[in-house]
Amino acid sequence: MPAEPHDATPRIERALVAPGHDGSAELLLRIRYGDGSSDSVTLDAAAAERLLDQCGATALEQLVGQPWRRLLNVLEQSGD
């Protein structure tokens, strides 16, 4: 779901597929912070797949609004 207007939790604001240096596709996430600032992070295909699964998302747009903690939990639990 989209972030609330006064929500201080960093959330995923945008998810795009981008070409990686090694010829693979990567997922570029833009994170919006509570103070209005934003930053981008890149996930490889395996991490992106896990994130989609954990968020129950079947499309990239469904990642929008997910809180950063969820992203972190997904990644911390992955054992690869």
């Binding site: 240096h21 990567e26 295909a45 797949e49």
Partner: peptide, 26 residues
């Protein structure tokens, strides 16, 4: 420019914009 390669063996994020394909590839 950068190219992206893929096979049907592995689900490429290239298909993430077409959910039906991405589901099938996985």
């Amino acid at each position: 420019p950068i190219d992206i390669s893929f096979t049907f063996e592995v689900a490429s994020l290239l298909f993430a914009g077409t959910p039906g394909w991405y589901r099938t590839m996985r």
